[in-house]
């Protein structure tokens, strides 16, 4: 049996993702008065990110319409696996240390 290829963007639970142009993303950064690293992150291995073809360093806009507030807009900064590893290992260390301290 061959598996039917499913486009996950068609799923109603997948919110709308769009890649922002350089200009647009600069506008966003200016609006919130931040540098790109202060934005929430998303991995470039994320299924939706892969489909829409965003690259590490892009800023994507996510519009959720299932939020309790109706429509809500999020921006995420796409990062590569290498950065994620650096970030995560620290996190795991921290948790292990804290856990062993507890009790």
């Amino acid at each position: 049996m061959t598996k039917k290829k499913i486009n996950i963007l068609d799923n109603e639970f997948v919110p709308e993702h769009t890649i922002l142009t350089e200009e647009e993303s600069n506008e966003i950064l200016q609006k919130f008065n931040v540098t790109h690293d202060k934005l929430p992150l998303i991995l470039d291995t994320d299924p939706v990110v892969k489909i829409i073809g965003a690259k590490s360093g892009d800023v994507i806009k996510i519009v959720r319409s299932d939020s309790p507030a109706g429509k809500s807009v999020f921006y995420r900064y796409v990062i590569g696996e290498d950065i994620k590893q650096g970030l995560e290992e620290d996190l795991v260390d921290e948790i292990i240390e804290e856990e062993s301290g507890e009790e």
Binding site: F32, L39, P40, S67, P68, A69, S72, V73
Partner: peptide, 11 residues
């Protein structure tokens, strides 16, 4: 100064 939510509680 990392952004956690772009609008408090999304609304």
């Amino acid at each position: 100064n990392n952004i956690i939510q772009f609008e408090y509680g999304e609304d």
